[in-house]
Nucleic acid binder design. Structure first.
Lengths: 231, 231
DNA sequence: AATTAGTTATGACATATGTCATACTAAATA
DNA sequence: TATTTAGTATGACATATGTCATAACTAATT
């Protein structure tokens, strides 16, 4: 986590996401811009979160870990999102981890100040409620998708959510890579089964195996398979 | 849904759950006590919810339905809970259904009045945030349990959550019954597999089949199996 | 009594997924 | 260079779960 002393960039994001309209009073003096480098955690289940963050740019994955050590992907953040809403609501620890998978910017306000100045700000609290409500709706839906759809569908969603556009013209413009061992964990499946399912997609002409990645060669079929997950 | 004109009972629940401490102003004039008879819905995905409800007595199940018509159990309510928190947070429809499985009491405040008088009440909003935050934490956790544990564990949780204490002295004091077709749906499994798994529990000496119910004859083993679900 | 609908029950088989052993490769390091 | 480690890959088999056909039982109805 690097503090970025660049008012120009920060103001750009404040304006873009209307962050100043979240509060009744002017909080801009308390805002700081942070850069999280790829791989860094914005928050962990174990650690207390020191800021309320407004995620403004980049991409992050949200996951939980269980007592048996396994972890499971919950969703991705790739547009404006509030982090720390659960904690500002007075709950000690949110039980999720957020790790950025691309360099990402967050605007932060220290939890201490947020609690001091914002816990009586109805405008702000309504927005927190809204953020939590949306997350809850999404979580409820994902819960059922996770249970009722086979890995193939969840994997398809995952590829679409994490694949990078190569900039090439189609076809094969989406490229997908990552540590397969880790991906299996995130999807709540075994490494073996992930491999099997990837091979299936290759056999069906949806993916193509490269040396260190997969290419999507039939995006339409992939989208048909993708359950409405990880939104 | 029957409106119960009984101030004595209502005040008892207001006091018991400190409902008057949820608001900055006195809302008691806007409160109504409702009785939901077993089987009734407090809210459905399709219907707009007309009240914010404080669930004060009884038991209810919360479930979602998917586009393919299947439904899946999310959790049970059997202690104080707020319903309509998502809607009061400005989200049109909460995507869940709540059906009472025992006669239950709720104290309601019309959504109209709640929005009129409470959307500027920071105290109230903090409590709504807290309610939503708890539900979100629980949902995130359940999502992973649903995916990572086999039916046997989820079924064990279900039996413990819905079984009735017969009043007999142990052993076999918990009795469990219900429409098995429906239970299969709620647990997100097939009827066939539910039967199989129930038989397994019988073979293991955990359950005993009666004419129209199952008896828990080894509660300890059942609790060992039960994942920490449906809380 | 015959009929019907809803529920319970079970076998057979297919598919989804997990576990394990093992092998190969590439990168890291002693 | 030899060794180790992490990641990738695959076969064999076991378990979890779904699908389907079918039967039996029960309660309500004709």
């Amino acid at each position: 986590m690097i503090k970025v002393n660049n008012l120009r960039i920060m103001n750009y994001y404040i304006k873009k996401h209307k962050i100043d309209e979240i509060f009744s009073r002017d909080m801009s003096n308390f805002m700081e811009l942070f850069l999280f480098k790829k791989g860094e955690h914005i928050c962990k289940e174990t650690d207390e979160i020191k800021n309320i963050f407004f995620f403004v740019e980049g991409k992050a994955k949200v996951y939980v870990t269980l007592s048996n050590g396994k972890s499971l992907l919950l969703c991705f953040y790739d547009s404006f999102r509030i982090l720390g809403d659960v904690e500002v609501a007075g709950i000690k620890k949110a039980s999720t981890n957020v790790q950025v998978i691309e360099d990402s910017y967050c605007i932060g306000i220290s939890m201490e100040r947020a609690k001091k100045y914002l816990l009586n700000d109805a405008k702000f609290l309504r927005i927190i409620c809204n953020s939590l409500g949306k997350k809850l709706n999404r979580s409820s839906k994902n819960s059922s998708i996770n249970l009722l759809f086979p890995l193939k569908n969840r994997l398809s969603s995952y590829i679409l959510a994490t694949g990078k556009n190569t900039g090439d013209s189609s076809p094969g413009k989406i490229e997908f890579q990552g540590n397969l061992t880790e991906i299996a964990e995130l999807l709540g499946t075994s490494y073996r089964h992930l491999l099997r399912t990837l091979n299936e997609l290759v056999l069906e002409g949806i993916l193509e195996k490269r040396s260190k990645s997969f290419r999507v060669i039939n995006e339409e079929l992939l989208r048909d398979l993708a359950a409405d997950l990880y939104r």
